[in-house]
Design a protein around this nucleic acid. Structure first.
Lengths: 234, 234
DNA sequence: TAGTGGTCTAGACCACCGT
DNA sequence: CGGTGGTCTAGACCACTAG
């Protein structure tokens, strides 16, 4: 017998298990040994194995259930983690000069779809903010936002001419959860004019809605000028 | 003295720290007590505090550095985790019928940009696969892929008429890391024809490149028909 | 160089849920 | 029911780095 390789760090265990999955030693759908057995095999504590397997489960490579044990995921789902920075910082991170131009701001009855998303009654009003974010003086993104005054009444008095609603909300409204949708949409005539591009240009669009428990806080549509992209490592 | 509230689970500690950040008891940039002190205050073990703070740091709300301690992040970065499923499963998950149509497949010298990404010499050849993914018979996405035969030689013999390169690679090539870029692009005439849309339509595009250690495995461009979107919760 | 987070350990109890 | 993962604990050593 030669000496066993030791896997006494959760990273080492993680990598070894990942290797066995990738090399098909453990195939999709297979049950793998339980934590106690793996700990014995790897010569480490069970909690070390636990952390490694938990990381792999978070990554979507393993399915873990009490009593049923741990299995290799049938359909390994790739997961990518994106950073969603505040636009100003995103621009400044590229060493560009950030600019901001409020286009309009009013208290109004939102259109049907927005009303539905914010869960407002048919006559309820909300704060509408339309603004332009600029990078080195050139339009970078249109922010079209509705803020639920029932949830964030202070928004009625905020000075969105100086601070974007985007940033104001980060500092003045908390949320418990939200959802984000990424899509590609053709620029409307109005959007094209604001961004200084041809109508119909392909815009990268991020729709975001946030809630504080059951109360909708705000919903926003960010339409980025052509050329924008989001990148991440996996 | 009234009895202290106990925080004897990492979730409870997590929530309490999150509360203090949200309520501005601990402001952006502030140092917070070290793990030992917090453990004493919360009446739990240091490792419990550690796990809670680690989760908050992963979420971008805290900055942690040895010796320097833990600080509330100056600019809380929102993070979103996207699932990147195999296209077939994505379509089947919507209860649509999946279809696949290989358009062309050849061994060729890739264009400059692809050569650069795959880190190939000027005369090196690679496997080029162009295919269409369909949902209920309608074009859903164009897959334009180059496979590095130096890394995955078996790709030369794969039958991409039956199994998409996308899926074949999942089963036959492993990778250690990769990068993904999301963008919006106008459909070229060729893309528009394949997808059955007007030229210039806004397409959601995912560019993905994967490596096995230092060797590029494949690079692919997935251009989705208008209407496609990616959604996630935060 | 000393203080902080990062991690490992050995043991323990518990929640969950297949069988 | 009983096996599995989920978690907590108390203690220890280590890696990193600010002062």
């Amino acid at each position: 017998m030669t000496g066993q390789t030791r896997f006494n760090s959760w990273q080492a265990v993680h990598d070894e298990v990942l290797r066995r999955i990738r090399e098909r030693e453990w195939k999709p759908g297979d049950s793998i040994p339980n934590e106690d057995d793996l700990a014995r095999e790897f010569g480490c504590a069970r909690s070390t194995v636990n952390r490694a397997l938990r990381a792999l489960a978070d990554a979507g490579l393993l399915d873990r259930r009490r009593r049923a044990g741990t299995r290799v995921a049938l359909h390994p789902v790739g997961k990518a983690t994106l950073d969603i920075p505040v636009i100003r910082r995103e621009i400044e991170a590229r060493s560009q000069r950030y600019g901001y131009a409020l286009q309009s701001r009013q208290d109004a009855v939102p259109p049907g779809p927005v009303r539905a998303v914010l869960n407002l009654g048919p006559d309820a009003r909300a704060q509408h903010v339309l603004a332009l974010h600029l990078a080195d003086g050139r339009p970078q993104a249109i922010e079209d936002r509705w803020i639920n005054l029932a949830t964030v009444p202070q928004a009625a008095d905020a000075d969105f001419a100086k601070v974007s609603a985007n940033e104001w909300l980060v500092d003045n409204a908390t949320y418990t959860h939200g959802d984000i949708t990424f899509s590609a949409q053709s620029a409307t005539a109005a959007e094209a004019a604001l961004l200084g591009v041809d109508a119909g240009a392909a815009l990268f669009v991020i729709d975001r809605t946030t809630w504080h428990h059951d109360d909708a806080v705000t919903t926003a549509r960010l339409a980025y000028a052509p050329g924008y992209r989001i990148q991440t490592r996996i």
